[in-house]
Design a protein around this nucleic acid. Structure first.
Lengths: 236, 236
DNA sequence: GCTTATTTATACTGAGCGGTACATAAATCA
DNA sequence: TGATTTATGTACCGCTCAGTATAAATAAGC
């Protein structure tokens, strides 16, 4: 492959951005935040952007970028191709937005666990439980981790996507590092332990279960692997 | 994607297998093993199957199955499409043979390291050095690990490929487990350490550097990660 | 009711895809 | 030398691909 054609960018759709941002309209004030949706001018869209992205994610996640066609995406979202294009741009743009929506979802799930504020060992087990739930779900069999999927496919060709993936990887590293640091400050971890090294191991464990899930290893095996890894990490 | 068409199997090419295996030809004995190649009947092939597979591997490894076209493979191997098909079967068959050739190559490299028979820590560092050499090489940027690439793409759809990937993953696990077990018997590792758990962590470290390499993290960072991981693993 | 703005729906385009039919080339066998 | 076998090279097939032109539909503004 030699990067097969690079079509011109889709015509910009200014997404209701005002051209005179300095001058608030006096007669028609913006609806107060959280109020009714602002009355748009033309035919109303028949889709919810968020759920459309979520449906697109399902397909990209299962099949990968290259093996997913616009027809697949159209069928999954219920939007026809021109609507897809108008709403999200071309296939690559859509993939990027889809990836960001995945990241938001994953971040929210992990944030919940983090907020629970429990001791290190149960916290780690809970986080890996959430990860396994994500990686093993999906109608067409276990899907693994979308960041890993993206790293192994489009990240090589598209610098934007690569940057997104790198930020996803380091976000995960930092998340774990914070966890280990807090545990260390609480005395749950020996002072000689290196939170950064443990964080990398924790991320590595995430990555290995993602890959193994994708190869359809049974959940029990993955849980056994996680338990062993947590034993080593929580020991310091 | 709903598994886009399953063309009939390519016509079998018996690969010079005799139809009467019980009766050795008396007049023309097989050339002694290691001797000159047996005289084949028709036009000689213009390619070496091994190097062709190696070239195909380069392309599949970089771009993945779906994004690699038969034209790409044709260009890389120097064989035209009918020759490719005749030699290796359709694209999926070729991918499987390519993957097996990759496994053989990787196994040979790791086997060398294993045969060197050194203490645990330098042995691990050497193994990860070999892995990094593989994962960071390639003309079109770092390629990561082909087993990981395969697990995240075709392993979901094709049971044969999935079986190959699983066997690749467990082979790696067993390789590391043997290493830790030997180290433990030598007293380099505490008796309480669990070789299986450490092997899983070692594999996880392989997987995480493969993914990060694919995202073009610099070698220095990957080496630092490896050093930290080895510190934890070699400590027991 | 007419104009304007926005989205949906249909149908199309040119290119690339995996795979193959067929003719040609190069070797052995008799 | 001519038949046979095997591999190559060209050109083609039907299909799918990503993307788009165009028209119809549905809303608000006036």
């Amino acid at each position: 492959m030699v990067q097969k054609r690079n079509p011109p960018a889709p015509r910009a759709r200014p997404e209701a951005a005002s051209l005179k941002p300095a001058k608030p309209q006096p007669a028609k004030p913006q609806p107060p935040a959280g109020g009714a949706p602002p009355k748009r001018r033309g035919r109303p869209r028949a889709y919810e952007p968020d759920v459309a992205l979520s449906r697109a994610l399902d397909v990209f996640w299962k099949d990968g970028f290259a093996a997913t066609s616009l027809d697949d995406l159209s069928a999954a979202t219920g939007m026809n191709r021109p609507s897809l294009y108008g709403a999200f741009g071309d296939k690559r743009e859509l993939y990027k937005k889809t990836y960001e929506s995945y990241r938001n979802r994953a971040r929210a799930r992990m944030g919940e666990a983090f907020a629970a504020d429990m001791p290190l060992r149960p916290m780690l087990l809970r986080i890996y439980g959430i990860a396994l739930d994500m990686y093993l779900s999906g109608e067409g069999g276990p899907r693994g981790c979308f960041t890993v999927m993206t790293a192994t496919s489009e990240a090589v060709f598209d610098p934007d996507i690569r940057a997104l993936v790198v930020s996803g990887l380091v976000e995960m590293d930092r998340f774990f590092a914070r966890l280990f640091k807090i545990a260390q400050e609480r005395g749950e971890l020996s002072a000689s332990a290196d939170p950064q090294v443990l964080a990398n191991l924790a991320s590595a464990t995430i990555h290995t279960i993602a890959i193994r899930a994708r190869a359809q290893m049974p959940r029990a095996e993955l849980e056994a692997l996680v338990n062993g890894a947590v034993d080593v990490m929580a020991r310091g």
